[in-house]
Write a protein that binds this DNA or RNA. Structure first.
Length: 871
RNA sequence: GGGCGAUUAACUCAGUGGUAGAGUGCUACUUUCACACGGUAGAAGUCAGAGGUUCGAAUCCUCUAUCGCCCACCA
């Protein structure tokens, strides 16, 4: 066996271990038959680098995958990346800008070449980072949303939905980003509470000196007004019926229409109607057949319909228009006004609602089956309370604008015939029209990135072909993702999965929280508080970072990231390292693991506890309670395996005897490594490789199973009283300032024969852990004043006083303990005197209370005796 | 306007009906031969507040307060 270095240095082996696994080919599912587990990655953007959210999600993916794999499942974690339309196009355009050129200059084909080249150069960054994290995904099945097979799936879905009438093209108000110069879906618009102004403007009534006053937050849109509206029941409307008003600046005469969408209480009760730049106004315009002139171009500048303001930026135009209205005495007042303004998710530019011809998916018919699937439990959300949000959104779903005016993405599979005007929607380029004409123009737009993401669980497995992978690994078992993309992604996958495979794409969805900084703030690049997982892995090791995340991964709950915790779990890794080091140093050479013999108390205890822990960890993982599983293992390794088990066996091991206890030690450590492996794969594998082992890799070995038969409850109970005794003695030593190096004479007194026999059998353990040179066990302790007294359960403890102890401090301590016992006795008395409690509480609870009461009374008496002695 | 969540030790969080938990921090002692990224012992909480249900409530119900998030076309 190699000697281990004295401390844990993750950089020394993480990379090597990952290469060891990968070259072993062990990330691919082990077999084509038998039980299988499958999970597909939420594909990160190729432009991205690993952030803490990824680190959390992928850690959990890996924990589940490794756990399932070690439980004998053919486990597939399918990795891949997303082409991320807008984000990627922006990055490459920025690059072009630096080269003093632009995508328009390059043209579509050459631009796309550039993006592919960019992807080749930089797109692998995130998958490299995924490897540093230890992700055991099957790289042979890695997919990219723009792979030919996945594009084929996208086109197949598009054509099918189009032919069914679920995809249509039309002119509606869409969210337009003037910077990205594309339409956005509602979800890609971030409403932000903004301090704006409400402008009150006079619109003169034609042929009268009267005017109506309208209130607006966006005066520049007035150039596109084609009416003003009032509520039909508004008495102020009656005299104005059939009147026309003169639109200031433009001089256009526009009607006054009655529409009950108008809120009589807000502003002046009169609304300007701009059908081409406001979704409400668009509806009003339709109802009243109003013209809808668009007054801005795609870059946010006023266009030729804006008269003299043409060519001016929308915000500049706003200023100038307000100035002019002021000058013309048409501006009544300006009020401060807080309201929600939509911003582009990608670039934060104020979104402009604009009338535009786009492609849409009709969502209602897709949403209904998706609602049903969650309602009847075919898809289970963890935690379940997110179902309400999910239903809420789907119940009120609106059609999805899927066309984007970008070049990077899946181009819409629609061709227009320049000869006959025919529209052809085909999976492959039809080449010529049904009219015989060959002058076909493909639609210029590409699809929303999320359109291809929605197909991810099945498109990655080969759909629409009925591939063996699709048959075996679909539906997937689990989806792990953050709650903030339930609408973007989770809901849409469920809709598309049901529509095209008649199956839910996954049976369970574990929703993680978001990672926050130590102050609880959301991490973001712009705030500058983002922490890079790569940095943390370099500083603390991938395992420590994984453990930090896992132990805080409560479903749906945000995680504040504290450096202190990372330090703590690095120390935990170091503890494990040194526990293994201890075993290696003390293990006899060439130990025969087949050796038999009688197990010691310590052997039986650690075996029982390991099995109990295996049961709880398996149960916790089965319920996705990662934090609970990690917590259990943390406590078990540190505070049981190291603090007690190793301490108990130390004296035996000095002898380096090749006995059965040495085998138990080795096996227990290996089981601890197995239990911890899904959480801390690198260090556990590294240690496993250095210990005698039979399997080629820890990752391939069997996860410790739940074996009730191996759990000896009697031994566990006995250990608890041994621990209580040892702690009580240590307490006496510590409180009375007995030199830690001094070996004491320890006297125990118990009226119970059984107990005396037990202490006798524990003699050597007690002597070592209490630092006692002599141990006497009596029925009753003699009345002598020259000793310190303590209590553990029904046993009294006595240590002869050598130096004069601090009696005053001792008295205070005993008094405090006595008071504590008395308080609890009083509480229990009330309970046990209560007839209702005795008759209605379960028998077990009553019995426990009675037992506790007896124990406390005995303890109280002993403490009182001690107090009498030292007073 | 609707919905969801949080409020537990100094800090960060677990804990969903039966004796209040963890990590960090804190205090004292301790470089003893796996580990000072260590060891031993200890102090520390009216479980936001008020009512209710129950033999019993941090946990279930109602209300209140504070904070956070999501959804929503009041110009």
């Amino acid at each position: 066996m190699d000697r281990l270095a004295k401390s844990y240095e993750p950089q020394d082996f993480e990379k090597r271990i990952y290469e060891f696994w990968e070259s072993g080919g062990w990330f691919a599912p082990a077999s084509d038959t038998g039980p299988r587990f499958s999970i597909s990655i939420p594909p990160p953007n190729i432009t991205g680098s690993l952030h803490m959210g990824h680190a959390l999600q992928y850690t959990l993916h890996d924990i589940v995958t490794r756990w399932k794999r070690m439980n004998g499942y053919a486990a597939l974690w399918l990795p891949g990346t997303d082409h991320a339309g807008i984000a990627t196009q922006m990055v490459v355009e920025r690059q072009l800008h630096q080269e003093k050129t632009s995508r328009k200059e390059l043209g579509r084909a050459r631009f796309l070449e550039r993006v592919w080249k960019w992807r080749e150069e930089y797109g692998g960054r995130i998958t490299r980072q995924l490897r540093s994290l230890g992700s055991s995904c099957d790289w042979s099945r890695e997919r990219f949303t723009m792979d030919p097979a996945l594009s084929h799936a996208v086109r197949t879905v598009f054509v099918s939905l189009y032919r069914e009438g679920l995809i249509y093209r039309g002119e509606y108000i869409v969210n337009w980003c003037p910077r990205c110069q594309t339409a956005l879906s509602d979800l890609e618009v971030i409403p932000k509470d903004t301090a704006g102004k409400l402008y009150y403007i006079k619109y003169p009534v034609k042929g009268s000196r009267d005017y109506v006053v309208v209130a607006t937050t966006r005066p520049e849109t007035m150039l596109g007004d084609t009416a003003v509206a009032m509520h039909p029941d508004d008495e102020r409307a009656a005299p104005l019926k059939d009147a026309l008003v003169v639109l200031p600046i433009m001089g256009r005469e526009i009607p006054i229409v009655e529409d009950d969408f108008v809120d009589r209480e807000f502003g002046t009760g009169v609304v300007k109607v701009t059908p081409a730049h406001d979704p409400n106004d668009f509806e009003v315009g339709r109802r009243h057949s109003l013209p809808a002139p668009v007054v801005m171009d795609g870059t946010g500048k006023m266009n030729e319909n804006a008269g003299e303001y043409a060519g001016k930026d929308r915000f500049q135009a706003r200023k100038e228009i307000v100035q002019r209205l002021k000058k013309e005495k048409l501006l009544v007042k300006i009020e401060d006004h807080q309201h929600m303004v939509g911003h582009c998710q990608r670039c934060d530019t104020t979104v402009e609602p604009t009338l535009s011809k786009q492609w849409f998916v009709k969502m209602k018919p897709l949403a209904e089956p998706a609602i049903a699937a969650v309602r009847d439990g075919r898809v289970r959300l963890v935690p379940e309370n997110w179902a309400k949000t999910y239903f809420e959104w789907l119940d009120n779903i609106r059609d999805w604008c899927i066309s984007r005016q970008l070049w990077w993405g899946h181009r819409i599979p629609v061709w227009y015939c320049e000869d006959c005007g025919n529209v052809l929607c085909e999976v492959a380029d039809p080449g010529r029209c049904t009219c015989g004409g060959s002058r076909l123009q493909q639609d210029e737009d590409v699809l929303d990135t999320w359109f291809s993401s929605a197909l991810w669980p099945f498109s990655t497995l080969g759909w629409p072909a009925q591939t063996p992978d699709l048959t075996r690994y679909y539906p997937t078992d689990l989806l792990i993702t953050a709650y903030d993309i339930i609408f973007f992604w989770v809901a849409r996958m469920i809709m598309m999965g049901l529509k095209f495979t008649n199956e839910v794409p996954f049976r369970e969805v574990f929703l993680t929280g978001l990672i926050r900084d130590a102050e609880g703030q959301k991490m973001s690049k712009s705030k500058g508080n983002a922490i890079e997982p790569e940095r943390l892995m370099a500083e603390y090791g991938a395992d420590a970072m994984r453990f930090t995340l896992a132990i805080q991964a409560v479903a749906g709950t945000d995680i504040p990231l504290h450096p202190g915790r990372l330090k703590g779990y690095r120390a935990f890794a170091n503890k494990l390292w040194n526990a293994a080091r201890f075993v290696m140093i003390n293990l006899p050479e060439n130990l025969d693991e087949g050796i038999t013999g009688e197990l010691t108390f310590a052997d039986r205890w650690i075996t029982s506890r390991t099995n109990q822990v295996a049961i709880s960890v398996n149960t916790a993982l089965a319920g996705y309670r990662f934090h609970e599983a990690a917590e259990t293992l943390y406590h078990f390794l540190w505070h049981e395996f190291c603090d007690w088990y190793i301490e108990l066996v130390k004296p035996q091991l000095i002898a380096k005897e090749a006995n059965v206890s040495a085998v138990v030690l080795l096996r227990s450590l290996r089981n601890v490594l197995r239990l911890l492996h899904p959480f801390m794969p690198f260090i556990t594998e590294e240690l496993y490789q250095k210990l005698p082992h039979s399997e080629p890799a820890l990752m391939l070995s069997r996860y410790p199973a739940a074996q009730e038969s191996e759990v000896d409850l009697d031994v566990i109970r006995k250990m608890e009283s041994l621990q209580a005794l040892i702690t009580a003695v240590r307490n006496l030593r510590s409180e009375n300032s007995i030199d830690p190096a001094r070996k004491i004479d320890l006297v125990l007194g118990s009226p119970l024969l059984q107990e005396r026999v037990f202490w006798q059998s524990m003699q050597s353990y007690i002597a070592t852990l209490c630092r006692a040179k002599a141990l006497s066990i009596l029925e009753h302790l003699p009345e002598d004043k020259a000793s310190l007294r303590g209590v553990a359960g029904t046993t009294e403890i006595s240590i002869p006083i050598v130096d004069a102890g601090d009696l005053e401090a001792e008295r205070t301590r005993v008094e405090r303990e006595l008071a504590k016992a008395e308080d609890e006795i009083a509480l229990l008395n009330r309970k046990l005197d209560n007839q209702d409690f005795l008759s209605k509480a379960p028998e077990k609870v009553v019995q426990e209370a009675q037992q506790r009461h007896r124990d406390l009374v005995a303890r109280k008496e002993k403490l009182e005796a001690i107090l009498r002695r030292i007073t």
